[in-house]
Design a protein around this nucleic acid. Structure first.
Length: 570
RNA sequence: UGGGGCGUCGCCAAGCGGUAAGGCACUGGGUUUUGAUCUCAGCAUGCGCAGGUUCGAAUCCUGCCGCCCCAGCCA
């Protein structure tokens, strides 16, 4: 693993308990083999992270294996770009599939042979019903379906027809291969499901144009699992109804191995969506800039936002694995991110909304290099120099002419504050422009207060600052939730989920001033800007050529809470 | 109204017949040159509801109620 490692022992869950029991019973000779089977039709998101941590985590902890297998049976929706992004994201999360890297399309020939076997056993037939007719024949949830008129074709005829399907002799949609199971089953998945369809003219990212028939998920997945010797095939709850089908194919074909399908509930995160269709449309319709837009709940987005991979893994272990519906609060993820970053991110000072301060009794032309710790609790992170001079910037929010209440600890006219890592200053005068806007503060400093408390008085507040002459300009992007509804995905009222998009999900601050040590930050480097939050250097450069930093997450802010309460009661 | 699941604190989640873990959130105290961090304390006589079995039930039984998924030639 390339990133810092926080050793969090994975809590057990019902799946691990089942595996423990299997091992105790010496099932599969005690071996454990899982797989993570994404379809390359989009970028991975936080929900996939849960599945990745589950499957790869089990592979590691049980000294077994976890295959990466692309479920690439629908070339219409799939792209090489997505297989590449998926590989990158899994690796970045900290998992390694070794040589166990497969595509379902690797098995197309074997899958075809299995289908021939099914036909020979009288368990599959070529059906000429079109999509609409097939829907009619399927029946409904409460009424049984009826047999297709093509259901009793002879084995010989089916064999011949299926070979012609492969040879490209039929148009799209004119024929399918179906499993012959039970049109009256109360489980709709068992009403003679389609297992092969015809698709001319699509270039598959792996197999090119060598196939014009493509197998369906239910048929492909169980057989791929079996071919790879998977022992525990873990998937989400909506496939529970498909398990009888999964088992039917493996039993009917008498395969050498019969993996066990186990279902768990997918993750929902408040204020986000994890539907691939909707994520795709966010990108395609321009609601976000790209799949790795820092507001996206994708792995790539979170990486660019500055989330450390260990925070995501920690999150996945904290939320647990069960079969119950769940919607996890954002606070849990944010807490994981803060926890990881608090420990590892070096501290820096950055002024996001600059207000100029002239320290009138500070000698003109004097520059002091202050030695400052990179981390208040971790000396091993070393020190850096911060220049102090007569003119500095502080944040506009850290000054108010008159304190609004006794709890206010920042700078006021006539009041004192500590400059973080520096001196105590007092504000003597406010300078306004012609419009009456505050543009500058005149202050004085107490030279005896560097690393020492002032004589005879207490200074409660501490504010951050940057030397005006030495600071570097930067753009800072401050993100908020992409949606302003806790469950934007559940559009019960028939509304499009886009009505819940938060128009203020990104604020761009272009006049920020950073301490000079930040000049050598490399893309992806993560810092705490003291009193502001955690930030990450973005690969982009601003329109005006400035470096760009993304706010990963704010610091926990109990003052904001107090202000909110005050505003409420006022 | 067919089939398959799920209901334990605001949100997750342990619990597997012996008397409700933990995390997040929240509330209050302490330390602090980040209103951060750290730290201490508090936070379900109660497990969807109603009966029953038992010395004893969140755990077993029965009956209700609520929520989710399934009628793609998507996965």
């Amino acid at each position: 693993m390339s990133e810092h490692e926080t050793s969090t022992s994975t809590p057990s869950n019902f799946i691990r308990q089942m595996i423990d029991e299997d091992i105790a019973a010496n099932k599969n000779n005690g071996k454990v083999a899982t797989r993570f089977p994404p379809e390359p039709n989009g970028y991975l998101h936080i929900g996939h992270a849960k599945s990745i941590c589950l499957n790869f985590g089990i592979g590691e902890d049980y000294k077994g294996t976890c295959n990466l297998r692309f479920d690439d049976t629908n070339p219409h929706k799939e792209k090489l770009e997505f297989v590449e992004s998926i590989q990158k994201d899994v690796r970045w999360l900290g998992f390694d599939w070794g040589k166990q890297h497969y595509f379902a399309s690797d098995y197309f020939e074997q899958l075809y042979d299995f289908a021939v076997q099914l036909i020979q056993k009288g368990k599959a037939y070529v059906c000429d019903l079109n999509a609409e007719e097939m829907r009619e024949y399927r029946g409904t949830l409460t009424e049984p379906g009826k047999d297709s008129p093509y259901r009793e074709r002879s084995i010989v005829e089916n064999l011949e027809l299926f070979a012609k399907m492969r040879a490209g002799e039929f148009e799209d949609g004119t024929k399918v291969l179906r499993a012959k199971i039970d049109m009256t089953s109360p489980n709709i998945n068992l009403r003679d499901p389609t297992i092969y369809r015809i698709r001319h003219g699509v270039v598959h990212h792996q197999t090119g144009e060598s196939w014009v028939i493509y197998p369906m998920y239910d048929y492909t997945h169980c057989l791929s699992d079996s071919i790879e010797g998977i022992t525990h095939s873990i998937c989400t709850l909506e496939f529970e109804d498909h398990r009888p089908l999964y088992d039917w194919f493996l039993d009917t074909l008498e395969t050498a191995s019969h993996p066990q399908q186990i279902e768990f509930s997918r993750l929902s995160l408040q204020y986000t969506i994890t539907s691939k269709r909707k994520l795709t449309s966010l990108v395609d319709d321009g609601h976000v800039a790209s799949w790795d837009d820092p507001r996206m709940p994708t792995i790539a987005g979170m990486r660019r936002r500055g989330y450390p991979p260990e925070a995501i893994r920690d999150f996945c272990s904290r939320i647990g694995v069960t079969k119950s519906e769940n919607t996890v609060e954002m606070g849990v993820l944010e807490n994981c991110v803060r926890e990881a970053l608090n420990e590892h991110a070096p501290r820096r000072m950055a002024v996001l909304n600059p207000l100029k301060v002239v320290i009138e009794n500070y000698p003109e032309g004097q520059v002091e290099q202050l030695q400052v710790a990179n981390h208040p609790q971790d000396e091993s992170m070393g020190k850096r120099e911060i220049p102090m001079s007569r003119e500095i910037f502080i944040d506009k929010d850290d000054f108010l002419e008159v304190a609004p209440n006794k709890k206010f600890k920042r700078l006021t006219l006539g009041g004192e504050v500590r400059l973080r890592n520096g001196y105590v200053i007092r504000c003597d005068e406010m300078i306004n422009n012609d419009n009456g806007d505050l543009i500058e503060l005149r202050c004085s400093y107490d030279p005896a207060t560097l690393g020492a408390n002032p004589e005879g008085r207490k200074v409660k507040g501490v504010i951050h600052w940057v030397s005006a002459e030495h600071g570097i300009k930067a753009e800072v992007r401050v993100y908020d939730r992409l949606f302003n509804h806790p469950t934007p995905d559940s559009a019960k009222d028939g509304q499009e989920y886009t009505v819940h998009l938060n128009p203020e999900s990104m604020a761009i601050l272009q006049d920020c001033v950073l301490e000079p040590a930040l000049a050598c930050a490399k893309q992806g480097d993560r810092f705490q800007f003291e009193r502001e939050g955690y930030f990450c250097k973005d690969p982009a450069v601003s329109a005006t050529g400035l470096p760009v930093f993304n706010r990963t997450v704010s610091l926990r802010d109990s003052w904001a809470k107090i202000e909110k309460e005050a505003a409420k009661s006022a």
